[in-house]
Amino acid sequence: MAMTKLLPLHRFEQFGLLSEAEREAVLALPGRPYTIDRGQTILRENDEARGFYLLLSGWAAVWKVMPNGGRQIAKIHLPGEPLGTPSMAMRRSTENVLAITDVVIANVPLARFGALFETHPRVAARFLLSVQQERIVLMDRLAAIGRVGAEASVASFLLDVKERLEPLGLVQDKSFDLMVTQEQIGDVLGLTSVHVSRVLSSLTSRGLIERNGRRYRLPNADLLSATAARPERQPFPDQDWLPAAR
């Protein structure tokens, strides 16, 4: 299947539309796509770093083994997002990446990505801006751990997933499929699965969310946002400082 049908471009275009030449350059980045089954490891900590991956479809999780043997999920990745970018600065991978669902991924060699800085510097700059947005979300979540209630953390998580699925066209009538378990939500937020279950039941009883299996609906995002512990962030609108398109 052509890469134009596989690779979502919203992460590259969230700071402005790509030119036709830039779109072609982005679509030429990944190698041959391949499938990894649900529950299989995509990347292991201490593997030799060979570029990064683009998640073409499916959900994946970045996780670390804690000193007590427990697991902490640092990030849930959705289609169109890069995997393994922190390891770009290292000789070996710094993280474990697990396929939460069946996934399709493709490798991006560092040399091929590096060429973008010369041939299409605006694309490379926008990619780095997108990665910085991920860093901000992670910092906000880390700052909230232990300082806000479980209800606020779960509400923030649900809103974040919905907002990231919307550019993919995977939200209809304010509803979406949540492809993570309550245990995995707990691993992201530092909560037990029992605690997550209680919070979801509370949010449901108050009409802030609706659930039918994996299908979640957020009927009033403003009310749910009032419950969530999320600082208001406003993207810098002026991108004139970025390199010109080539």
Rank of each mutant, 00 (worst) to 15 (best):
R32P: 00
N220H: 13
S225W: 12
S193Q: 14
E166L: 11
H10A: 11
P243D: 04
R126V: 11
V26I: 05
R211A: 08
A152R: 00
M179P: 00
L138S: 13
R23Y: 02
A115N: 11
S93D: 01
T227Y: 00
V171A: 09
G213Q: 10
A111K: 12
R217G: 08
A21G: 05
I209T: 03
I105V: 15
R164T: 06
L159T: 04
V65G: 01
A226F: 07
K75G: 00
L6N: 03
E134Q: 14
K75R: 15
W59Y: 14
K5R: 14
S175H: 06
P243Y: 09
S175K: 04
A74Y: 04
Q239R: 13
N212Q: 14
P243Q: 07
P231E: 03
L170W: 11
S87A: 11
Y53Q: 02
R112F: 02
S156E: 13
L43P: 00
L208Q: 04
V123I: 08
A61D: 00
R23K: 15
V154R: 04
L165E: 10
V104M: 09
G69Q: 04
A115C: 06
F176N: 03
L110D: 07
P235S: 05
S202I: 07
L168V: 12
A115T: 04
V26M: 09
V26K: 02
T119N: 12
R164M: 07
S202R: 14
L223Y: 05
V148K: 07
P235A: 07
Q182K: 08
R135P: 00
R92K: 15
A150M: 04
A221D: 12
F15A: 10
Q184M: 10
Y216P: 00
L178Y: 02
Q239W: 11
L110A: 13
P79Q: 08
G84M: 10
H195M: 06
A28Y: 05
S205Q: 15
R217A: 13
I76L: 13
A61M: 12
R246H: 14
L158Y: 02
Q182R: 12
L159Y: 03
D238H: 03
P79C: 09
R50V: 03
V97S: 02
L158P: 03
G58Y: 00
F15N: 10
M179T: 01
R71L: 13
A155M: 01
L218I: 15
H77F: 14
P219K: 05
V137C: 02
E22V: 08
V194R: 13
E183G: 08
E22P: 04
M88D: 00
V104A: 06
R91N: 11
D222H: 06
S197E: 10
E20R: 14
E166P: 00
E163N: 14
P8Y: 11
F12M: 12
